[in-house]
Design a protein around this nucleic acid. Sequence first.
RNA 1: GUCCUGUUAGUGUAGUGGCCUAACACGUUUGGUUUUCAUCCAAAAGAUCAUGGGUUCAAAUCCCAUACAGGAUACCA
Length: 513
Amino acid sequence: MSRRTRVRFAPSPTGPLHMGGVRTALYNYLFAKKNNGDFILRIEDTDQGRFVQGAENYIIEALKWCGIEPGEGVGFGDGPHAPYRQSERKEKGIYKQYAQQLIDSGHAYYAFDTSEELDTMRKRLEAAKAKSTSYNAITRQEMKNSLTLSEDEVKRKLESGDPYVVRIKIPRNEEVRLKDIIRGWVVVNSNELDDKVLYKSDGMPTYHLANIVDDYLMQITHVIRGEEWLPSAPLHVLLYRYLGWESVMPEFAHLPLLLKPDGNGKLSKRDGDRLGFPVFPLDWKGVNAETGQMETSSGYREKGYFPDAFINMLLLLGWHPSGNDEVLTMAEMIEQFSLERVSKSGAKFDPEKTKWFNQQYLRKRTPLELADAWRPELDIRGIKPAPAYLESVCKLLQEKAQFVNEFWNLGSYFFVDIVAYDEEVIKKRWNDKSKAFFNALAAAYEGTEPFDAATTENIFKQTCEVMGVKTGEVMQLYRVALTGAAGGPALFEITALLGKQTVAERLKKMAER
RNA sequence: GUCCUGUUAGUGUAGUGGCCUAACACGUUUGGUUUUCAUCCAAAAGAUCAUGGGUUCAAAUCCCAUACAGGAUACCA
């Protein structure tokens, strides 16, 4: 019997959600939809020291903006496995029993070492040039734990409330194998693993324990996460085994990392600041979990990117469709997505292609959608155009821009007086015939009906003939007269849109220069 | 240091032993269209498939080694 596909996105609320995290969420979402399964948001807030106010909300907002909404989880309605916040699950005592189960079955033990003692041990091993400095089958014999201490002593420590952690007892010299959907078989000898802490002295489970317990309880079938988790995957396999859950262990897929555009290394906030592109979906202002300083970061939303363009760009970082079409609708993404086509190597992020994607999506928008997107900015400028007029303007500007936020610079002349003339063009084209021509054109336009693109173009050409000038001589001047700029959308479309009166005023102004 | 993972034009990727004289997209350059700009159309440049060895009649593709890169090595996730 095959289980219903269930996947989860499980971020830590330690700051704004990185675009790499958004991609992980995207792949999870796509995989769930493709397989008619469930997509869950679980908040892994087991580290109280790094909790950042507002981060959880940011994650939820970001997923909403991107259109990759979980069907259950924090911020998206509780499902049958609530709560979905690990701190709350800990309150319900969900994790402790499993730590106990592992102790009872001999796969875990209590350890009482202080952080100073651990530090000393590591320094000593390092000085001795030992192969490894980890808490493992060899070193645990010299530490303070329930394997070395007498039963009475352990009992006394526990009862007197001495701080302790629970560590997994990694077996010696055993091969741990796991099959990764993207990378194939990964085999590690257990001697390379260490006795990871499962349960912290503050009463919280660590990521490793909480993650396995929750994935099991929430009936997760596929774990799709970043490559940085690959080294600890064998530990997770062991936990499933010792907890007796190996038959329902999820399949793993470790995604390649997102790399900086230049040089090497993981894509970081610093790269974005340095190279001038956002690394986060939304603007962020908050405390940095590491430094404790206030920090701000810019986001794709505020930079003017469309969420579907942003998602499409992210999709192609580490995955590629079998066909050649790279601009995909959400339905097509779902239809075509497969983990088998995810690449193994890290993907260098290319800000240029991101812009291109936005341009593609801008082209695909209807004038009405663009008008709605632009209206807030016009409102702020105190401009309230008629809906039909605004749509027509958007339709013309659509072919010229990559972003809606370029519209104003490209087409302010549709709403307000020309800010500045392109003097280069005037210098080059203005001659002794120009003034007479513009006066004649203004006069000819006066009786032009209808004042549409085709008719005004005809009148324009007739006027050229009558005045004995070549269209090429005056066309650019005409554009400057109407828009101030040397380039732009189709000129007679602009003429018609501006209307007889405005055109007349601008021609007059030009003629009087 | 140790372990794990990776390496195809500037970038993202295609490629699963012969169809590879290595394809597509972004970017770059050139030409055409739009009298302009953007678009669109066409074309060009750009890759010793990291390096070395091996297996094979045949290798980007399989194996080994090396180099380089990244990740992990916390009572962080």
